[in-house]
Structure formats: C-alpha cells, structure tokens
C-alpha cells in the first residue's frame, strides 16, 4: 500500500528522514584540530629540549604530561566536550582525548565517593583502550620475539 507504513522496511525507508553526517567536513575538521593539538605538542617538546635538560628521546614524557594536564583542565572547565563535538576524532584520538575520557568519568562519579565512585569508574571509557593496547602489545611482542629468533 504505502511506503513508510511498512514495519519490515521501516528502518531502511526512514533513512531519508535522518540527516547524514558530512564525512568530508568532519575529516577536515578532525585533521586541523588534531593537527593543532600535535603542533602544540611539538612546540612543547621543542620548549622542553631548549629550556630544560631533555633530549629528543626523553622530552616525550613531559610533553605528554603537559598535554594531559591541559586536557584535564579544559574538561573541568567544560570546554573539552565542546571541542569534541566540533572536532570529532580530531580531539578524541590524541592523548588529550584519553585524558578527557578519564577526567570526565572522575568528575561524573565524584558524587558516589572516592573508592566506589571515582576509582571504580575512572577507566569506564578508557578501559577498552588500555585492554586492547596491552593485549595487542603482548601479541606483537611475542610475534617479534619469534621473528627475531627465526631470523637469528
């Protein structure tokens, strides 16, 4: 009979009513915001090498720590989620996004107490990243060990 009044095909037919995400614009936004975060990181690294006793290898740690601190503060001030809505993956993928996921969970669950609230929920969002990071690192480590031994 009619087009939309059809339970079976509704999910497919309703698609024409739903606004589509604009992938091209989203990619451009993510590229520039993500790039800007990396640029800040690069500036910090140069700063630490020039003004402190760090080498190119060791400057990574204070750089990351500073970025995490900035992201945590921006989360607390209620700014990072607005950047996230604009930039998408651009602010989600860098280490600042990881810091935001932890800080926002801590803020959210503060009212439930330090142990069962903050500590339990701290890695609610970031936990998956850590699990897959550790597991994939272990698997790749084993593969590399075998390859090294095989190739002598």
């Amino acid at each position: 009979m009619s087009q939309l009044n059809n339970q079976k095909d509704y999910k497919k037919n309703a698609k024409s009513y739903q606004p589509k995400p604009n992938y091209v614009i989203n990619c451009i936004k993510a590229f520039f915001v993500g790039g800007a975060i990396c640029l800040i990181g690069q500036c910090l690294q140069v700063f630490f090498i020039h003004f402190f006793d760090f080498t190119e290898k060791t400057a990574g740690n204070p750089t990351t720590a500073t970025l995490i601190l900035i992201a945590a503060l921006l989360t607390g001030f209620g700014i990072y989620d607005k950047i996230g809505q604009f930039a998408g993956a651009g602010s989600l993928v860098p280490v600042t996004g990881f810091a935001n996921s932890i800080t926002s969970a801590a803020l959210e669950h503060k009212s439930e107490g330090i142990v069962l609230g903050i500590a339990t929920n701290l890695f609610k969002l970031a936990g998956a990243v850590i699990v897959f990071g550790v597991v994939s690192a272990a698997i790749l480590g084993v593969i590399r060990l075998f390859l090294n031994n095989l190739l002598g």
């Binding site: 739903q18 606004p19 607390g76 209620g78 809505q85 998408g88 996004g97 935001n100 926002s104 969002l125």
Partner: peptide, 17 residues
C-alpha cells in the same frame, strides 16, 4: 546523560539525529 549516555564532560561527538 549519566544514566543513558556518557559522562557530561566527555568529548565524544553526537550525531545530528
């Protein structure tokens, strides 16, 4: 937000729908 979605300050983008 807490009940159904993510922490309030989490920076994950939401779709237009």
């Amino acid at each position: 937000e807490r009940q159904f979605r993510y922490p309030t300050e989490y920076g994950g983008p939401k779709p237009k729908t």
